[in-house]
Structures are given as structure tokens and as C-alpha cells.
Amino acid sequence: MKQNTFYLLAGITGLVEVGLFWLSVDLHNPLIITAGFIMGVGLLYVARLMITDVAEDERSRLITQKAGFRTLEVFWVIFFAVSLGTAVIGFSTPLGIPRPRGFPREFPRDQPYLGYFGILQMVLLCCIAFLYIAFRVYYARKYGEWDTDEE
């Protein structure tokens, strides 16, 4: 499989995922998008293994590993911090702990607030994707990905 074919497949998969998401919303069934997303990502992982026109060697693998590791180092701190903050909101009212200043007066119990946390998680994941790209560019430059030929 050529890399451009893979990108095309990724785009189609993305569109299908969007459709599954709204179908889930319409049917009030979160399992559809959850299972669909896992299957979509699994499909792309398998398809990526079948790409034949992109050469990968130890240097490119090192770049990917370093970028992934640095992203994870930042990601878990931010994600844990946000989760802790959300836990404070969750625990503050029922346990009678005084709410910190600046927090919303009413915890939105009559609304699907877990869904709001899911949106916050997706925003964080999008930011992490950009962070990974930034690290990837940094390490690619460091290890001479775009250096010009001296021959």
C-alpha cells in the first residue's frame, strides 16, 4: 500500500467516525462510537504496517520514540492535574468541603457533566497531538531529517 492510499483511508475512516459519533448521539448509545473508534484505530494501525513506499530505519524510529516519550512526560502531568481539579469539583459539594473561590456556584447535577469532562479530555488530546508534532519536528531537526546533501 502506498502512503497516499493510507492517508486516503485515514480520511475516510475519520469521516465514518464522525458519522458514528452523531449516530451514537442520536441513538443515545455511547457504545457505538466507543467500539467504532477502537475498530477504526485498529484498522489504521494494520494499514500502517502495509505501507511499502516509506523507508524506516533506526534513526527515524529513534525520532518517533523520543517525541512519543517527551509527549507522554508532559501529557500525564497535564491530564492528571486536570483530573485532580475535576475530582475536587466532584467531591466538594456532596462531602461538604467548602468550594474554592472562583468555582461555579452550582455543580451542574441536572446536566450530563461527565460529557463535558469528555469534551475537555478531547481538547486536551488535540493539544497533545500538536505537542507531539512539535516534539517530532524538534527531534527530526536535531537528527538531520531535513539537512541538505553535501554531495
Binding site: R59, K142, D147
Partner: peptide, 27 residues
């Protein structure tokens, strides 16, 4: 050429270039 050496060693030409320039230490 860098390309020929890269093909012999089954790596990319950029890897040979990076090693020659001292930007990457090979395994």
C-alpha cells in the same frame, strides 16, 4: 554515493548524511 551506501546498509540516505555530519550516532 550516500544513496548507494544507504541501500547497502538498508537505511535511509538521510541517516548516512546525519551520521556523516555528526548529528546522529549510529547503533
Amino acid at each position: 554515493t550516500q544513496e548507494a551506501l544507504a541501500q547497502e546498509l538498508k537505511v535511509t540516505r538521510q541517516t548516512i548524511l546525519a551520521i556523516e555530519k555528526g548529528k546522529y550516532d549510529p547503533s
